[in-house]
Nucleic acid binder design. Structure first.
Lengths: 158, 158
DNA sequence: GATCTAAGTTCAAAATAAAGACTCAGTAGC
DNA sequence: GCTACTGAGTCTTTATTTTGAACTTAGATC
Protein backbone atom coordinates (compact mmCIF):
# COMPACT_ATOMS: atom_id res chain seq x y z
CA UNK A 1 0.00 0.00 0.00
CA UNK A 2 1.14 3.49 -0.69
CA UNK A 3 2.27 4.44 2.77
CA UNK A 4 1.93 8.03 3.91
CA UNK A 5 4.89 10.21 3.04
CA UNK A 6 8.05 9.08 4.70
CA UNK A 7 9.48 11.35 7.32
CA UNK A 8 11.91 13.13 8.07
CA UNK A 9 10.99 15.34 5.15
CA UNK A 10 10.76 18.98 4.32
CA UNK A 11 7.03 19.21 4.97
CA UNK A 12 6.00 16.92 7.81
CA UNK A 13 2.32 16.17 8.20
CA UNK A 14 1.00 18.23 11.05
CA UNK A 15 -2.54 16.84 11.34
CA UNK A 16 -4.69 13.98 10.09
CA UNK A 17 -6.35 14.72 6.74
CA UNK A 18 -9.68 13.29 7.92
CA UNK A 19 -11.63 14.75 10.83
CA UNK A 20 -12.24 12.34 13.65
CA UNK A 21 -16.01 12.55 13.42
CA UNK A 22 -15.84 11.84 9.67
CA UNK A 23 -13.60 8.80 10.07
CA UNK A 24 -15.16 5.38 10.48
CA UNK A 25 -12.13 4.12 12.30
CA UNK A 26 -12.22 6.90 14.86
CA UNK A 27 -15.95 6.36 15.40
CA UNK A 28 -15.43 2.62 15.81
CA UNK A 29 -12.61 3.21 18.25
CA UNK A 30 -14.78 5.37 20.46
CA UNK A 31 -17.23 2.51 20.75
CA UNK A 32 -14.84 -0.44 20.92
CA UNK A 33 -11.67 1.08 22.31
CA UNK A 34 -11.46 0.06 25.90
CA UNK A 35 -9.99 -2.72 27.91
CA UNK A 36 -13.03 -5.01 27.87
CA UNK A 37 -15.33 -4.38 24.94
CA UNK A 38 -13.40 -6.30 22.29
CA UNK A 39 -12.88 -9.18 24.70
CA UNK A 40 -16.62 -9.31 25.36
CA UNK A 41 -17.28 -9.40 21.62
CA UNK A 42 -14.72 -12.17 21.24
CA UNK A 43 -16.70 -14.22 23.75
CA UNK A 44 -19.89 -13.41 21.89
CA UNK A 45 -18.33 -14.73 18.68
CA UNK A 46 -17.43 -17.95 20.41
CA UNK A 47 -21.03 -18.21 21.55
CA UNK A 48 -20.66 -17.34 25.23
CA UNK A 49 -23.80 -15.37 25.94
CA UNK A 50 -24.79 -15.46 29.61
CA UNK A 51 -23.88 -12.79 32.08
CA UNK A 52 -22.28 -15.09 34.59
CA UNK A 53 -20.44 -17.11 31.96
CA UNK A 54 -18.94 -13.94 30.51
CA UNK A 55 -18.01 -12.74 33.97
CA UNK A 56 -16.32 -16.00 34.90
CA UNK A 57 -14.56 -16.43 31.57
CA UNK A 58 -13.20 -12.90 31.47
CA UNK A 59 -12.84 -12.38 35.23
CA UNK A 60 -14.40 -8.99 34.69
CA UNK A 61 -16.12 -7.16 37.56
CA UNK A 62 -19.89 -7.47 37.45
CA UNK A 63 -20.47 -3.74 37.38
CA UNK A 64 -18.17 -3.21 34.42
CA UNK A 65 -19.68 -6.10 32.49
CA UNK A 66 -23.15 -4.74 33.14
CA UNK A 67 -22.14 -1.28 31.87
CA UNK A 68 -20.42 -2.65 28.77
CA UNK A 69 -23.28 -4.95 27.85
CA UNK A 70 -25.73 -2.08 28.14
CA UNK A 71 -23.52 0.02 25.86
CA UNK A 72 -23.18 -2.78 23.30
CA UNK A 73 -26.91 -3.46 23.31
CA UNK A 74 -27.54 0.27 23.05
CA UNK A 75 -25.17 0.57 20.11
CA UNK A 76 -26.86 -2.36 18.39
CA UNK A 77 -23.99 -4.85 18.42
CA UNK A 78 -25.64 -7.22 20.87
CA UNK A 79 -29.25 -8.16 21.43
CA UNK A 80 -30.74 -9.44 24.65
CA UNK A 81 -32.62 -12.63 23.79
CA UNK A 82 -34.86 -14.41 26.29
CA UNK A 83 -34.12 -18.06 26.97
CA UNK A 84 -35.28 -20.70 29.40
CA UNK A 85 -33.28 -23.66 30.56
CA UNK A 86 -35.25 -26.65 31.76
CA UNK A 87 -38.12 -25.43 33.92
CA UNK A 88 -36.08 -22.50 35.14
CA UNK A 89 -37.44 -19.00 34.82
CA UNK A 90 -36.81 -16.88 31.75
CA UNK A 91 -33.40 -15.25 31.57
CA UNK A 92 -31.61 -13.27 28.92
CA UNK A 93 -28.68 -14.14 26.68
CA UNK A 94 -26.50 -11.58 24.94
CA UNK A 95 -26.09 -12.47 21.28
CA UNK A 96 -24.48 -10.79 18.32
CA UNK A 97 -26.81 -8.77 16.13
CA UNK A 98 -26.13 -8.63 12.37
CA UNK A 99 -24.16 -5.46 13.05
CA UNK A 100 -22.11 -7.35 15.62
CA UNK A 101 -21.59 -10.32 13.33
CA UNK A 102 -20.38 -7.95 10.67
CA UNK A 103 -17.45 -7.17 12.93
CA UNK A 104 -16.10 -10.67 12.29
CA UNK A 105 -13.60 -9.69 9.60
CA UNK A 106 -12.25 -6.92 11.80
CA UNK A 107 -11.73 -9.27 14.72
CA UNK A 108 -10.12 -11.81 12.40
CA UNK A 109 -7.79 -9.12 11.07
CA UNK A 110 -6.84 -8.24 14.62
CA UNK A 111 -6.39 -11.92 15.47
CA UNK A 112 -4.14 -12.58 12.49
CA UNK A 113 -2.02 -9.54 13.30
CA UNK A 114 -1.72 -10.68 16.90
CA UNK A 115 -0.74 -14.16 15.78
CA UNK A 116 1.96 -12.77 13.50
CA UNK A 117 3.48 -10.33 15.96
CA UNK A 118 2.56 -11.16 19.53
CA UNK A 119 1.98 -14.86 19.74
CA UNK A 120 4.88 -17.17 20.41
CA UNK A 121 3.40 -20.61 19.87
CA UNK A 122 1.22 -21.80 16.98
CA UNK A 123 -2.37 -20.64 16.96
CA UNK A 124 -5.13 -23.14 17.74
CA UNK A 125 -7.48 -21.26 15.40
CA UNK A 126 -7.78 -22.54 11.83
CA UNK A 127 -9.54 -20.49 9.18
CA UNK A 128 -10.00 -22.47 6.00
CA UNK A 129 -11.98 -22.62 2.80
CA UNK A 130 -14.66 -25.24 3.40
CA UNK A 131 -14.37 -26.45 -0.20
CA UNK A 132 -10.64 -26.72 -0.67
CA UNK A 133 -9.26 -26.67 2.88
CA UNK A 134 -6.91 -23.82 2.02
CA UNK A 135 -5.80 -21.48 4.77
CA UNK A 136 -7.41 -18.05 4.57
CA UNK A 137 -6.03 -14.61 5.20
CA UNK A 138 -7.33 -11.07 5.40
CA UNK A 139 -6.75 -8.96 2.28
CA UNK A 140 -8.18 -6.14 0.22
CA UNK A 141 -10.15 -7.40 -2.77
CA UNK A 142 -11.80 -5.93 -5.85
CA UNK A 143 -15.60 -6.24 -6.21
CA UNK A 144 -15.11 -9.48 -8.13
CA UNK A 145 -13.12 -10.95 -5.26
CA UNK A 146 -9.56 -10.68 -6.45
CA UNK A 147 -6.94 -9.76 -3.85
CA UNK A 148 -4.86 -6.67 -4.59
CA UNK A 149 -1.27 -6.55 -3.31
CA UNK A 150 -0.42 -3.74 -0.90
CA UNK A 151 1.82 -1.88 -3.39
CA UNK A 152 -1.08 -1.66 -5.78
CA UNK A 153 -3.54 -0.16 -3.29
CA UNK A 154 -4.28 3.52 -3.60
CA UNK A 155 -5.38 5.33 -0.47
CA UNK A 156 -6.83 8.76 -1.11
CA UNK A 157 -8.83 11.40 0.68
CA UNK A 158 -11.46 13.28 -1.32
CA UNK B 1 -19.08 -17.79 7.84
CA UNK B 2 -20.22 -20.65 10.01
CA UNK B 3 -21.38 -18.70 13.01
CA UNK B 4 -21.08 -20.24 16.44
CA UNK B 5 -24.04 -22.35 17.44
CA UNK B 6 -27.19 -20.32 17.75
CA UNK B 7 -28.60 -19.94 21.19
CA UNK B 8 -31.01 -20.54 23.03
CA UNK B 9 -30.12 -24.19 22.68
CA UNK B 10 -29.86 -27.27 24.83
CA UNK B 11 -26.13 -26.90 25.40
CA UNK B 12 -25.11 -23.26 25.59
CA UNK B 13 -21.43 -22.43 25.33
CA UNK B 14 -20.15 -21.68 28.78
CA UNK B 15 -16.60 -20.53 27.98
CA UNK B 16 -14.42 -19.54 25.03
CA UNK B 17 -12.74 -22.54 23.38
CA UNK B 18 -9.42 -20.69 23.12
CA UNK B 19 -7.49 -19.49 26.17
CA UNK B 20 -6.88 -15.78 26.26
CA UNK B 21 -3.11 -16.08 26.30
CA UNK B 22 -3.25 -18.40 23.27
CA UNK B 23 -5.47 -16.08 21.24
CA UNK B 24 -3.88 -13.49 18.99
CA UNK B 25 -6.93 -11.28 19.23
CA UNK B 26 -6.87 -11.23 23.01
CA UNK B 27 -3.15 -10.46 23.01
CA UNK B 28 -3.65 -7.67 20.48
CA UNK B 29 -6.51 -6.28 22.53
CA UNK B 30 -4.35 -6.04 25.63
CA UNK B 31 -1.90 -3.90 23.69
CA UNK B 32 -4.29 -1.82 21.59
CA UNK B 33 -7.48 -1.85 23.64
CA UNK B 34 -7.73 1.53 25.26
CA UNK B 35 -9.22 4.88 24.53
CA UNK B 36 -6.16 6.40 22.81
CA UNK B 37 -3.83 3.80 21.34
CA UNK B 38 -5.75 3.10 18.13
CA UNK B 39 -6.26 6.81 17.57
CA UNK B 40 -2.53 7.40 17.96
CA UNK B 41 -1.84 4.69 15.41
CA UNK B 42 -4.38 6.24 13.07
CA UNK B 43 -2.43 9.50 13.22
CA UNK B 44 0.78 7.59 12.62
CA UNK B 45 -0.75 6.05 9.49
CA UNK B 46 -1.66 9.49 8.23
CA UNK B 47 1.94 10.52 8.83
CA UNK B 48 1.53 12.68 11.92
CA UNK B 49 4.65 11.90 13.88
CA UNK B 50 5.60 14.70 16.27
CA UNK B 51 4.68 14.75 19.91
CA UNK B 52 3.05 18.16 19.85
CA UNK B 53 1.23 17.55 16.58
CA UNK B 54 -0.25 14.35 17.95
CA UNK B 55 -1.21 16.10 21.14
CA UNK B 56 -2.91 18.98 19.32
CA UNK B 57 -4.64 16.77 16.77
CA UNK B 58 -6.00 14.34 19.34
CA UNK B 59 -6.39 16.78 22.24
CA UNK B 60 -4.84 14.12 24.41
CA UNK B 61 -3.16 15.05 27.70
CA UNK B 62 0.63 15.18 27.41
CA UNK B 63 1.18 12.64 30.15
CA UNK B 64 -1.08 10.06 28.53
CA UNK B 65 0.47 10.58 25.12
CA UNK B 66 3.91 10.15 26.61
CA UNK B 67 2.91 6.92 28.32
CA UNK B 68 1.21 5.50 25.23
CA UNK B 69 4.08 6.37 22.91
CA UNK B 70 6.53 4.67 25.27
CA UNK B 71 4.32 1.58 25.29
CA UNK B 72 4.03 1.54 21.50
CA UNK B 73 7.77 2.00 21.03
CA UNK B 74 8.38 -0.68 23.66
CA UNK B 75 6.04 -3.07 21.87
CA UNK B 76 7.75 -2.39 18.57
CA UNK B 77 4.89 -0.71 16.69
CA UNK B 78 6.52 2.71 16.58
CA UNK B 79 10.13 3.76 16.29
CA UNK B 80 11.61 7.02 17.49
CA UNK B 81 13.49 8.53 14.57
CA UNK B 82 15.71 11.58 14.94
CA UNK B 83 14.94 14.52 12.68
CA UNK B 84 16.11 18.09 12.36
CA UNK B 85 14.08 20.92 10.89
CA UNK B 86 16.07 23.84 9.49
CA UNK B 87 18.89 24.64 11.88
CA UNK B 88 16.82 23.57 14.86
CA UNK B 89 18.16 21.02 17.27
CA UNK B 90 17.59 17.29 16.78
CA UNK B 91 14.19 16.08 17.83
CA UNK B 92 12.41 12.74 17.52
CA UNK B 93 9.52 11.67 15.35
CA UNK B 94 7.35 8.64 16.07
CA UNK B 95 6.99 6.52 12.95
CA UNK B 96 5.39 3.18 12.22
CA UNK B 97 7.73 0.21 12.28
CA UNK B 98 7.09 -2.68 9.86
CA UNK B 99 5.10 -4.30 12.68
CA UNK B 100 3.03 -1.13 12.96
CA UNK B 101 2.55 -0.86 9.22
CA UNK B 102 1.36 -4.44 9.20
CA UNK B 103 -1.60 -3.28 11.28
CA UNK B 104 -2.93 -1.43 8.22
CA UNK B 105 -5.42 -4.10 7.16
CA UNK B 106 -6.79 -4.31 10.67
CA UNK B 107 -7.33 -0.56 10.85
CA UNK B 108 -8.90 -0.61 7.39
CA UNK B 109 -11.23 -3.40 8.50
CA UNK B 110 -12.22 -1.33 11.51
CA UNK B 111 -12.65 1.74 9.32
CA UNK B 112 -14.89 -0.05 6.83
CA UNK B 113 -17.02 -1.48 9.61
CA UNK B 114 -17.33 1.97 11.18
CA UNK B 115 -18.29 3.44 7.82
CA UNK B 116 -20.98 0.82 7.33
CA UNK B 117 -22.53 1.02 10.77
CA UNK B 118 -21.63 4.23 12.54
CA UNK B 119 -21.02 6.86 9.92
CA UNK B 120 -23.93 8.86 8.63
CA UNK B 121 -22.45 10.77 5.70
CA UNK B 122 -20.26 9.42 2.93
CA UNK B 123 -16.65 8.63 3.78
CA UNK B 124 -13.90 10.89 2.46
CA UNK B 125 -11.54 7.91 2.32
CA UNK B 126 -11.19 6.09 -1.01
CA UNK B 127 -9.44 2.76 -1.23
CA UNK B 128 -8.91 1.71 -4.81
CA UNK B 129 -6.90 -0.58 -7.05
CA UNK B 130 -4.23 1.62 -8.57
CA UNK B 131 -4.46 -0.27 -11.87
CA UNK B 132 -8.21 -0.45 -12.40
CA UNK B 133 -9.62 2.16 -10.03
CA UNK B 134 -11.97 -0.38 -8.51
CA UNK B 135 -13.13 0.12 -4.93
CA UNK B 136 -11.53 -2.31 -2.50
CA UNK B 137 -12.94 -4.13 0.48
CA UNK B 138 -11.64 -6.34 3.25
CA UNK B 139 -12.19 -10.07 2.74
CA UNK B 140 -10.76 -13.49 3.49
CA UNK B 141 -8.76 -14.88 0.59
CA UNK B 142 -7.08 -18.15 -0.36
CA UNK B 143 -3.27 -18.20 -0.78
CA UNK B 144 -3.72 -17.47 -4.49
CA UNK B 145 -5.72 -14.36 -3.71
CA UNK B 146 -9.29 -15.43 -4.32
CA UNK B 147 -11.93 -14.12 -1.94
CA UNK B 148 -14.02 -16.73 -0.14
CA UNK B 149 -17.63 -15.88 0.77
CA UNK B 150 -18.54 -15.94 4.44
CA UNK B 151 -20.74 -19.05 4.17
CA UNK B 152 -17.81 -20.98 2.78
CA UNK B 153 -15.39 -20.09 5.57
CA UNK B 154 -14.66 -22.77 8.13
CA UNK B 155 -13.58 -21.65 11.57
CA UNK B 156 -12.14 -24.40 13.70
CA UNK B 157 -10.17 -24.84 16.88
CA UNK B 158 -7.54 -27.57 16.98
C1' DG C 1 21.11 37.20 29.48
C1' DA C 2 16.19 36.89 28.31
C1' DT C 3 13.01 34.56 25.28
C1' DC C 4 11.04 30.97 22.43
C1' DT C 5 9.83 26.19 21.19
C1' DA C 6 9.28 21.10 21.15
C1' DA C 7 9.05 17.65 24.07
C1' DG C 8 8.52 16.17 27.85
C1' DT C 9 7.70 15.48 33.64
C1' DT C 10 5.18 16.37 37.92
C1' DC C 11 1.27 16.95 40.79
C1' DA C 12 -3.56 17.72 42.60
C1' DA C 13 -8.33 16.87 41.33
C1' DA C 14 -11.79 14.24 38.83
C1' DA C 15 -13.40 10.21 36.64
C1' DT C 16 -13.29 5.10 36.16
C1' DA C 17 -12.46 0.56 37.47
C1' DA C 18 -12.15 -3.16 40.85
C1' DA C 19 -13.76 -6.06 44.73
C1' DG C 20 -17.03 -7.47 47.42
C1' DA C 21 -21.49 -7.21 49.83
C1' DC C 22 -26.21 -6.88 48.93
C1' DT C 23 -30.76 -7.45 46.17
C1' DC C 24 -34.27 -9.68 43.58
C1' DA C 25 -37.07 -13.18 41.15
C1' DG C 26 -38.21 -17.55 40.55
C1' DT C 27 -37.22 -22.84 41.90
C1' DA C 28 -36.69 -26.54 44.84
C1' DG C 29 -36.62 -29.06 49.09
C1' DC C 30 -38.71 -29.84 53.47
C1' DG D 1 -44.80 -21.53 54.72
C1' DC D 2 -39.76 -21.33 55.51
C1' DT D 3 -35.14 -21.90 53.96
C1' DA D 4 -31.75 -22.33 50.66
C1' DC D 5 -30.10 -21.82 45.87
C1' DT D 6 -29.09 -19.63 41.32
C1' DG D 7 -28.51 -16.23 37.63
C1' DA D 8 -28.35 -11.67 36.95
C1' DG D 9 -27.77 -7.90 38.36
C1' DT D 10 -27.09 -3.18 41.78
C1' DC D 11 -24.60 -0.60 45.43
C1' DT D 12 -20.80 0.97 47.99
C1' DT D 13 -16.12 1.56 49.21
C1' DT D 14 -11.49 1.57 47.76
C1' DA D 15 -7.80 1.61 44.30
C1' DT D 16 -6.20 3.02 39.84
C1' DT D 17 -6.26 6.04 35.71
C1' DT D 18 -7.06 10.11 33.43
C1' DT D 19 -7.17 14.94 33.17
C1' DG D 20 -5.55 19.64 33.20
C1' DA D 21 -2.35 22.75 34.44
C1' DA D 22 1.99 24.14 35.87
C1' DC D 23 6.80 23.27 35.71
C1' DT D 24 11.35 21.59 33.33
C1' DT D 25 14.84 21.01 29.89
C1' DA D 26 17.81 21.63 25.80
C1' DG D 27 19.10 24.00 22.31
C1' DA D 28 18.22 28.18 19.02
C1' DT D 29 17.27 33.20 18.54
C1' DC D 30 17.28 38.04 19.79
Amino acid sequence: MSTPETYPSETPIRSAPVARDACGMALATELLGDRWTLLILREAFYGVSRFDDLRADLTIPRGILSTRLKALVGAGLLVKAPYRQGRDRVRYAYQLSPMGQDLALTLIALMQWGERHLQTGPSPVRLTDRRTGQTLQIALVTPDGQAVPAEQVDFQIV
